[in-house]
């Protein structure tokens, strides 16, 4: 029987209120509210450049918000000391877009890295744990390879094995499907879904891949221009009337998110004598 108190079960794993974040003069997030519920796969979707990866970095405490609150497991991330932040991160796994494997270590040593850094377990036990994690992503046989010998999809699966090495409670996925062939994409989607269920995880998937993400997500937030422009289950969003959501879900080149970057009138530009 689950012994977790009822209040903790109901509290979102990530609770964001009034988040504002700027890079120079550019506003990335403007007063955003967002909840990540426990046990769910929550997708954050939106066009490129909307700050989806930045949101993951804010949740992971690698960036600090200009205003607003980000609570992860009930802790205000922006107010944690470095030591407290590192303790929190032991409960969070993150899959980077590039995989971010340590290039001077083998596949085995990459997955063993967090275990060796934090657990003090004997090497024999670390070996068994690493093999279990690699088996889960189907790459036990690749344990002796170097990252340079892996395909993009394999590298991400190794990174996923590393992300679950410490048995985290939440995994943040940064664009897991980008640049993958259909087989790798399907494999990754299946892995994310299976791991979330079997390990009782909470998953946050940042992606602009509508099809694959809709297949595995329980709830989707769509972002654009620093604001949330839609949210709901994949089925709800598929039937949304919002032109913003429609443009993104249907992949329309022009709409509320314009095709053209802001520029002077085309005719004026062609007739002007400016060099660039």
């Amino acid at each position: 029987m689950d012994q977790t108190p009822v209040t903790e079960q109901r509290e979102p794993v990530v609770q964001i209120r009034g988040l504002t974040f700027r890079r120079g003069a550019r506003v990335i997030f403007d007063n955003v509210d967002l909840d990540i519920e426990r046990g769910r796969i929550t997708a954050i979707m939106g066009p490129s450049g909307t700050g989806k990866t930045t949101l993951l970095r804010l949740i992971g405490g690698q960036l600090r918000p200009d205003a607003g609150s980000i609570k992860v497991f009930g802790q205000e991330v922006g107010k944690l000391s470095r030591r407290e932040l590192f303790e929190l991160r032991k409960r969070i796994g993150m899959l980077f877009q590039s995989g971010a494997l340590l290039t001077d270590l083998t596949v085995f040593d990459n997955v063993a890295f967090p275990l060796r850094e934090h657990t003090g377990l004997p090497e024999r036990m670390i070996r068994d744990l690493v093999l279990i994690k690699l088996e889960a992503v189907g790459l036990r046989g690749a344990r002796g390879l170097m990252p340079s010998e892996l395909s993009g999809g394999m590298a991400r699966r190794v990174a996923l094995a590393r992300a679950i090495a410490l048995d985290p409670m939440m995994i943040l996925y940064d664009e897991p499907f980008t640049g993958q062939d259909p087989i790798s994409m399907g494999t990754l989607a299946q892995l994310i879904h299976a791991l979330n269920g079997t390990l009782s995880l909470t998953s946050v998937v940042v992606s602009h891949d509508v099809h694959e993400t809709s297949l595995i997500a329980d709830y989707i937030y769509v972002m654009s221009g620093g604001k949330l422009i839609g949210e709901g289950s994949p089925q709800t969003l598929a039937q949304s009337d919002s032109p913003w959501v429609r443009q993104f879900m249907d992949g329309l080149p022009d709409g509320p998110v314009p095709f053209h970057y802001p520029a002077p009138a085309y005719g004026d530009d062609l007739l002007s004598n400016d060099d660039a």
């Binding site: 690698q62 590192f86 980077f96 971010a100 340590l102 290039t103 967090p114 850094e117 934090h118 590393r162």
Partner: peptide, 21 residues
Amino acid sequence: LMKATEQLSAMEMMATDPLSR
């Protein structure tokens, strides 16, 4: 290059201080 390929960021997210490691 470790910074450019997010290896240092990954270490931070694995609760390992890259300055120390």
